[in-house]
């Protein structure tokens, strides 16, 4: 039996930014739609809140075109995201 659990949503957002640098909020949502689109938490407000939180913690940075990329600290924290889909 395989046990294929999704990542927590905030994990998925940061991993998505790591895999797709210079993503903006719309492209991030597009990429995550297949996995999380059916969940109540999948909305612009929640994703924006998670992005603000990740930026405040210094894990991601936002350029003047409102695109996000990982910081050096963010890369270090990816060690916690090592499993599952």
């Amino acid at each position: 039996m395989t046990f294929n659990m999704k990542l927590p949503f905030k994990f998925a957002i940061i991993r998505n930014i790591a895999e797709n640098p210079a993503s903006n909020i719309n492209t991030i949502m597009e990429k995550l739609k297949d996995d999380y689109g059916s969940e109540g938490q999948f909305n612009l407000k929640m994703v924006s809140m998670h992005l603000d939180s990740l930026r405040t913690s210094g894990l991601i940075q936002e350029d003047t075109n409102y695109c996000y990329s990982l910081t050096a600290t963010g890369h270090l924290r990816l060690k916690y995201i090592t499993h599952q889909k």
Partner: peptide, 17 residues
């Protein structure tokens, strides 16, 4: 109620959890 019920278990299964 905010659609995050599954997040509890998902998060608990991670090292930060």
């Amino acid at each position: 109620s905010t659609g995050r019920g599954r997040e509890i278990f998902r998060s608990l299964m991670t090292k930060p959890g």
